[in-house]
Every structure is written in C-alpha cells, then in structure tokens.
Amino acid sequence: MRPGLIKEIIKGIFVKPVTIQYPKEQTLIEPDFRGRQYADLKKCIGCSLCAVECPANAITMTKIPDEYVAPKTNARRIYPVVDYFRCVFCYRCVTVCPVNAYLVTNEYRLASSTIVESSELSLSTTTKAAGGV
C-alpha cells in the first residue's frame, strides 16, 4: 500500500493542461449538437403544434409583421418565437413540426443580459415586400 499517483503527477507537470482558456480558445462542439433552433418562415404554416408541445412553454406564436412576406400556406400569418432563456433544447419542436420548418444549429453561446429570442433570426429567413403582401 503506497501513494500511487506520484508518477502521474510528475508527468502532469510537463504536459499541456487539459483545460482550455475559453473565450480565446473555442470548445470543440459536435456539428449535430442540439443548439439554437429557429423557424424558417418560408416553410412555417403557423400550426402552433410546437408551441403546444413545448415542455418548457418557451414558444409563443406571434404575428408576422406586415412588411414581411409570408407563404400562402400560413393563412393566419403567425410564427413561433422561441425564448432561449426558457428553452431546454430538447428539440421536441423540431421533431413534431409537420413541415420540418425548423433550422437547427450547434450554437451554444447564448448568455446575454438582454432577452434572447428567435424573432430576428426567423424574420431573416424571409424577405421584406414593398407595401406589404
């Protein structure tokens, strides 16, 4: 019975640390990591299924502003806005969507002092029309 870690510790002095200096060096993340997701307004039909199924109640259905183009299938002109402070990133919205309208990313850096939600990202998927639809 003897202390067994000594060799390992001495070896550890000469190798690079396993920890990284985070903001300077980025964490390696899988490409299919469940990160920030948002609705593609070209596909979304405004069915509200994702808002109903969301276990964290993070999704609210919002009216698409008049100046943006919405597809004809989206008759009610509403789209889901994800509040990322409430979202638990289970991707239930992604898998229940009947038209596969959600765009998924592996973005995990969502810390902020202001509210982070998906309306800007979703609206950027469609175009502004001059004088409305």
């Binding site: 870690l5 510790i9 396993v18 899988e30 299919d32 990591f33 469940r34 990133f89 289970c90 991707y91």
Partner: peptide
C-alpha cells in the same frame, strides 16, 4: 488530486454521450 484526474477522464465519457445523443448531459 485523484478527484481532479478522475473528473478529467470522465469528461471523455461525457463527450461520447454528446456524440451519441447531442448534448453532454441532457440526453433527451
């Protein structure tokens, strides 16, 4: 010290869980 070393190697298992399920902790 042993705590630190074990936790270091545990991180590799977490990584394999991330590869499999998409997140290192919350598998869903």
């Amino acid at each position: 010290t042993l705590f630190m070393y074990l936790m270091k190697d545990r991180e590799y298992v977490m990584k394999s869980k991330e590869i499999l399920t998409g997140q290192r902790v919350m598998a869903d």
